[in-house]
Design a protein around this nucleic acid. Structure first.
Lengths: 227, 227
DNA sequence: AGGCTAATGACAGCCGCTGACAGTTGACAA
DNA sequence: TTGTCAACTGTCAGCGGCTGTCATTAGCCT
């Protein structure tokens, strides 16, 4: 077995090629483990759930859990990794004429559906959405989430730099736009997770609203430009 | 004793009022623990240093370490907490006529020196600066750092909202500006920590350069506006 | 059918962290 | 000065995350 090690979704690739009883069982165990984890995390809380609890819920030993996921945290972000990958793809797909910030925004708009599909293949989308609240309210998970977001930003900054034909180590602008975009996204997530409607649609709409606030927020005189 | 619990610097306040042998010893133990920790972390690496190592270097038991610091991580960010406090003060001190983004920038410019002083009282500034590289290159520390940064941003967003007389839960702009500012700061830290000159002056200059890139980066046509 | 190897479980052990208990040592009043 | 109290500390036991090791089981392939 070579699954764990930040358990990359790519492992899931040769699904249709040659099922095989072995692969099938592995996949089923992983999905069960994943579901059990997210359910326990959202019901009982992340810190309050031990890896033993998750393993037991999936009828495997704790050791096996760690063979599928590099860490407790790794399991928590498995679905998020799928979503990220879709977004990166969407950015790649944007026409090069678009201004960077527009490209990011359009890529996001275009990703929502594919992200939903991707997540749903592994775990109920609704569960995944509810789990975001747990992330926001659990310091350890929030920290991990932010670090992951930063890494994602770095990857995207490189894509943007390529699009514009810039050397990312010489021109700060790619990293800056992406960082700004990411910052707004995170503020949005935070607000969204604190609200009642944790549906994907609500997040999508809120994101659009907040992105509209970037320019207004950066220019001076606020006092006479009330929302 | 009531030290730990995210060991708030405020505990250090009544230093001059009434030294007392007890207080003095406590302070000395804490500082020694802190220095030992940072030195070991920067020399040997954070993950490679056990709390037992730190405790032993300071000639106390592991249990005592945890009475001074809520966690290994808590010790790592003790000095950073001092710096943050100075920055928050500086933001408060800004004249209300300044536009938000300007205020943040000026506050930062005004803080550099006081931050240096504050840190120096607990740990050699140079050690603290070198430790930033460790933070940047240690996933667990980077994650914690980002979470801390987010919390700081929230606090500052409230200050900004107050300045402008806005309700932070109704108007997204305070959080958005602060998030943008913070994003640029973090990109700057990242670049800076990867360079040779890890002096405070280098960071200050780099920060100024990057902040200048915000507007240019957000407006469209990059290709004909090369740096 | 039988050999090969992947997958699993059981066990031991490290590290971060906490509660409990007992011993030591400053602080302060008699 | 001395005795009491409270603060500070060390020791020990134990939990949870995580890893290495090894024996056992179970799918795969000829």
């Amino acid at each position: 077995m070579k699954v764990a090690g930040t358990s990359a979704p790519p492992e899931t690739a040769p699904t249709a090629s040659r099922p095989g009883l072995r692969e099938l069982k592995k996949q089923r165990t992983r999905d069960l483990l994943l579901r059990s984890a997210l359910e326990l995390f959202t019901e009982r809380g992340y810190e309050e759930t031990t890896v033993d609890d998750v393993a037991e819920a999936a009828d495997v030993s704790q050791r096996t859990f760690f063979r599928y996921f590099a860490s407790k945290e790794d399991a928590a972000f498995f679905a998020a990794r799928l979503a990220e990958a879709r977004f990166v793809d969407a950015v790649h797909a944007r026409p090069p004429e678009e201004a960077p910030l527009d490209a990011l925004r359009q890529a996001l708009a275009a990703s929502w559906d594919t992200i939903g599909e991707a997540v749903e293949q592994v775990v109920p989308l609704e569960l995944h959405m509810r789990f975001y609240r747990v992330i926001e309210s659990t310091p350890a998970l929030l920290a991990a989430h932010l670090r992951r977001a930063t890494e994602l930003e770095e990857r995207i900054a490189r894509v943007v730099a390529d699009r514009e034909g810039l050397d990312i180590d010489r021109d700060p602008r790619p990293r800056v736009v992406v960082a700004v975009f990411g910052a707004v996204m995170r503020v949005t997530e935070r607000i969204w997770s604190g609200r009642d409607d944790t549906g994907l649609a609500a997040l999508r709409d809120l994101t659009a609203t907040y992105l509209d606030q970037v320019s207004p927020a950066l220019t001076g005189n606020w006092r006479h430009t009330e929302t």
